[in-house]
């Protein structure tokens, strides 16, 4: 016996509907009770609607302040130091005013500002260009605004590096676990509680997600003696919002529309 096309389509259609209904019901149930009974968020974890930073430039007086803040981040995140600018991997670094705020050079660039070391790191933008281009969702935006990296997924295509207008991302051209010509490891202080990366993935500041989950402030915030303040930008009573309300602040390249979440107080209080 043979079936004609019409009959075939009917049978196929019905079995598809049954099939979809069937798995949806079963999966729904299974998934529901697995998640409900087996995993829960850490109760001490810090939460927010949109995490943001305020960098108060008056608190960065010397090279030592900058070094301390950079080391506080790079040491606990096993960030390698390849010793040359071409291969450089950085999560937080310093740059001068005209490179951090191109196009705004004349407005506030007093002599003092010109020489200041501006702390720069991933802006955890509200509309991150990097997230839009990542083909594997290795970089993605969390509900609390942190732009996160899932190193298990990164294929090293570097689209995100091309997309980010702030140079916040670094590629591992070399094996970060390797050693230099003198046998010195690229990772100077290996923190056994945090992973390293491999050759061929992109990395950047992840907002100290591992510390937030344990109820701790980001490392740079702790090390900065008030120079970097962290809080919920959506909460009008948060410290970051109060600082932004009281002081004149600028952000990096707001005209690009990514809505950076780092605000810089550049004038000190007298200029506010």
């Amino acid at each position: 016996m043979s079936i004609n096309r019409r009959q075939f389509l009917k049978i196929a259609g019905i079995s598809t509907i049954l099939g979809i209904g069937g798995t949806a019901v079963v999966n729904g149930l299974r998934k529901g009770d697995l998640e409900a009974s087996q995993m829960e968020p850490n109760p001490e974890g810090l939460t927010a609607k949109r995490w943001g930073f305020v960098v108060d430039m008056s608190k960065f007086k010397s090279e030592a302040d900058v070094k301390r803040v950079i080391a506080s981040c790079h040491d606990i995140h096993n960030v390698p130091d390849f010793g040359n600018p071409k291969d450089e991997v950085k999560w937080i670094w310093k740059d001068d005013y005209e490179h951090v705020f191109p196009g705004q050079e004349n407005e506030y660039a007093t002599e003092e500002m010109k020489g200041k070391p501006f702390m720069v790191f991933c802006n955890h933008c509200a509309y991150p260009a990097c997230v839009r281009v990542c083909p594997t969702k290795a970089t993605f935006k969390r509900k609390d605004g942190i732009v996160m990296m899932d190193m298990h997924r990164c294929i090293g295509c570097r689209f995100c590096m091309a997309a980010c207008p702030f140079g916040a991302r670094s590629f591992n051209f070399r094996d970060p676990r390797g050693t230099d010509a003198n046998g010195q490891p690229f990772i100077k202080h290996l923190d056994p509680e945090f992973p390293t990366r491999t050759k061929g993935v992109v990395e950047k500041c992840t907002g100290c997600y591992e510390r937030l989950a344990k109820g701790k402030m980001p490392a740079c915030v702790e090390a900065s003696n008030g120079g970097i303040v962290f809080g919920d930008l959506e909460d009008p009573n948060s410290e970051v919002r109060k600082l932004i309300g009281k002081n004149y602040t600028i952000r990096r390249r707001p005209e690009l529309g990514t809505q950076p979440s780092i605000y810089y107080i550049i004038g000190g209080n007298e200029n506010a």
Partner: peptide, 10 residues
């Protein structure tokens, strides 16, 4: 990594 849910109840 993806959901920030990190306590396992066995």
């Amino acid at each position: 990594v993806r959901d920030n849910v990190r306590v396992y109840v066995n």
